[in-house]
Write a protein that binds this DNA or RNA. Structure first.
Lengths: 198, 198
DNA sequence: TTGTGTATATTCACTGGTTAGTATACATAC
DNA sequence: GTATGTATACTAACCAGTGAATATACACAA
């Protein structure tokens, strides 16, 4: 069952990814993506039925790698869960200091397409954040924290807040401030659990 | 010293405001703004030298009213500072449940124009958030909190995080979760101060 | 081995519509 | 009669998506 050639499709997504992330969705034309991928627009429209479809593919391709990176940062940090979560923020701050950094592609896309609530790209973004929230919730549940979902959401709020604020101010130190708040909230939830047991 | 007629200019900004907030900056054409304001594009270009100029005016017009609203929500809430700050989040959640709500205009604009770091609209957005941060910092300083700037930034991170997350998930309950986290962090900072004194 | 049919993959050239910004002229007020 | 303000009509570029033709690969029969 032969299907649309994978390497070509992947090259298109890669080109779209770089352009959409750096310039924004509506700023980038399909012609530009095709040119960057080294083929014609007509060929691109053979592999993707519309620009919206291409935008969705751009975010879908970022889903797993992004989550894997967060998990890696968490796992390779030494210490308890509060310190491990804070390590995610510290690593993110390091990334955000690179000049080409332009925030979170999922959030920026949802902000740009806010007038199209059912857009597939927004759904992919929402699913991505939900996966991260779920992973945090499971991690906190393992620690016996009383309301792991609430805590996971608070950490997510700090994380996405730091994406937004750092993009606006171009000051990555906000990410470290967010990490500190996250560590504090987690440590307090752990303490509370201890009090209930003892 | 006669200057460009104020009512006309204000009507243009009002039209631009509605369109840019609802549809996004790059999605809306100057023609649409002019039509909504009830005049021709050429007239609009008499009052604003470029579309970028118009975008900046759109955000500048939202600066003071937005800050005033937050202060009002803070002041009319009954209770201590933690509860008063949480009230801001609760009121915001109520706003966010309106179907026309589409997040924070400042953040969405900065996300859409992330490829133009020096854009005047982004500077206006950054200044707006800084003013809110300053107001929080002063409020916390009055309470004798040890590091009022850090706490102010953590609240700001939760606030802007909730703008981003609620826009993505269309679930305003995240704002109440953020408010709870804010209240917790402030209450803890107040307690810490008390411990140092006692 | 060679011919041939078929689905995959790619290109050129085009359409109909939109867009930011402008040249020019006309109106109105003081 | 000069500065302010408004409208008509235009440019030159851009943009999402398509029609029609073509090229490539591979299965299978002779």
């Amino acid at each position: 069952m032969p299907r649309p050639s994978e390497p070509t499709r992947a090259r298109i997504v890669q080109a779209a990814s770089a352009l959409f992330y750096n310039e924004g969705i509506r700023r980038v034309s399909v012609d530009e993506v095709a040119a960057k991928a080294g083929l014609t627009k007509r060929t691109l429209y053979y592999h993707f039925k519309s620009k919206d479809d291409l935008v969705a593919a751009y975010l879908a391709a970022r889903d797993q790698p992004n989550l894997a990176l967060f998990r890696k940062w968490f796992e390779e940090a030494e210490g308890g869960v509060p310190v491990k979560v804070e390590a995610i923020f510290k690593n993110l701050a390091r990334s955000a200091r690179h000049p080409k950094w332009k925030g979170c592609g999922f959030l920026r896309t949802s902000a740009e397409l806010a007038n199209m609530p059912g857009h597939p790209a927004i759904r992919i973004g929402a699913a991505h954040k939900k996966k991260f929230e779920d992973w945090l919730r499971a991690t906190f549940a393992e620690q016996g924290i009383a309301d792991p979902l609430k805590l996971a959401r608070q950490i997510l709020l700090l994380l996405d807040g730091s994406f937004a604020v750092v993009l606006l101010h171009r000051d990555a130190s906000y990410m470290e401030t967010a990490g500190e708040a996250a560590r504090t909230l987690i440590a307090m939830a752990l303490k509370k659990k201890g009090q209930k047991r003892g």
